[in-house]
Design a protein around this nucleic acid. Sequence first.
DNA 1: GCAAAAACGTGCTGCAAAACATAAAAATCG
DNA 2: CGATTTTTATGTTTTGCAGCACGTTTTTGC
Lengths: 235, 235
Amino acid sequence: MTKRQELPNTEDILPSLSPISSLLTEEQKKELQTNIVIKRYKKNEMMYKEGDVPQFLHCLISGKVKIYKEGVGGRNQIVHIFKPVEFFGFRAYLANENYITSAAAFESTTLCIIPVALFEKWLSENLQLANYVIRLCAIEIGILNRHIVSLTQKHLRGRIAESLLFLKDTYGLEDDEQTISARFSRADLADLSNMTTSNAIRTLSAFSNEKILDVRGRVIRILDEEQLRKISKIG
Amino acid sequence: MTKRQELPNTEDILPSLSPISSLLTEEQKKELQTNIVIKRYKKNEMMYKEGDVPQFLHCLISGKVKIYKEGVGGRNQIVHIFKPVEFFGFRAYLANENYITSAAAFESTTLCIIPVALFEKWLSENLQLANYVIRLCAIEIGILNRHIVSLTQKHLRGRIAESLLFLKDTYGLEDDEQTISARFSRADLADLSNMTTSNAIRTLSAFSNEKILDVRGRVIRILDEEQLRKISKIG
DNA sequence: GCAAAAACGTGCTGCAAAACATAAAAATCG
DNA sequence: CGATTTTTATGTTTTGCAGCACGTTTTTGC
């Protein structure tokens, strides 16, 4: 027996894919079983990169994944963060483009991949699945529209406040009902909030001084959510 | 005979709806014919407003329509511009939300509306239509992702340059192969490019001085597209 | 065709945020 | 465990952009 990290068994993974697989026909479920591959990524490892040809539908089993775009001065903008169990990496293929964003793991991450052409085939023969995907896309477009206004018009404090609330809503809180269940570097928080690392650091310190947050390295406790929401709202 | 502007006949309109109607079944085409209504909007008139309950799928027959979102200081951000024949106004309904953007006419505009619940029914029974809509959404998400980075990271000059190129690509050029086939106020150009009206004016003048553009009121001729693309790219 | 209103152009001022610089603290690794 | 690298923290400088004021030009509506 080697010391190498064991990959979970394909059979064990299937139940956790219910968001998609429950919509598949029996035929399609079989195709899923025979074509699914499980992959593991370490911290900061990339699944794909801007410009790559999209080949797989990715399904996040465990860990955290960021979708981001390289900006003008090498600065990144995170456009989406995924949590288990969500799937991604299919948009560019359906739009007939190469990837225009990159995907990377925030932390040790397990996901499974399925040839995206197969997914497209399923869409073309399964009304329920197609309508589910339409719903996902419609929601995503709404999020992006809101995001555009937030990122461009809110000030530093408003943007960071919004990001922290987003992380809280996405990953939830720990048992103390205050600590965000996620550890992000200041650089990642900056990439999420359209600012430089220095400004993310500075603004977090300010919130800490104002007793809105309790910041200990990457562990962030929200002390005054009321106030944080207000700051996020007014910008 | 009154002097009132005549609405085009429903029958005359149907052929121009081919992008959608060609995907419909015979049954659905009949439903379309009996449920379609033609409406006319004058300049700056609104079709719907943020917060409204979505009720209709809108199909732009002639004119120009902007989709925009009110920002923090009453400032607007245009998130999409439609040209004939494109359809809009269904996203919020499919995402089960109220409208989060508003729609208004840039100029005299004709469009037809169909109850959006009917459109949803069509989606749930027509694979081809569903897959067409998925493709539209996938493309839209890509545009928005790119837009987020442009609006947040490019400078004034880069943002205006990008908007002008976008207008050129959307509405084309007039016979001289230089004049953009669209007249927009500085305020609209500003709302499109995430800046104040003053800055839109200032930057256009600068481009005019640099012989990149020839600006006469709302008539804009692109003299040096090469240069404009460079400015748009580097930000 | 004229008056009123809207849109456009330009200069100036102040502030917010980016860039730069540097030091302290923490994480990583042989 | 100590040495090197990365991350975090903070102070300073510079830049970019919004806001305002004011004058001019162009549209719009009667």
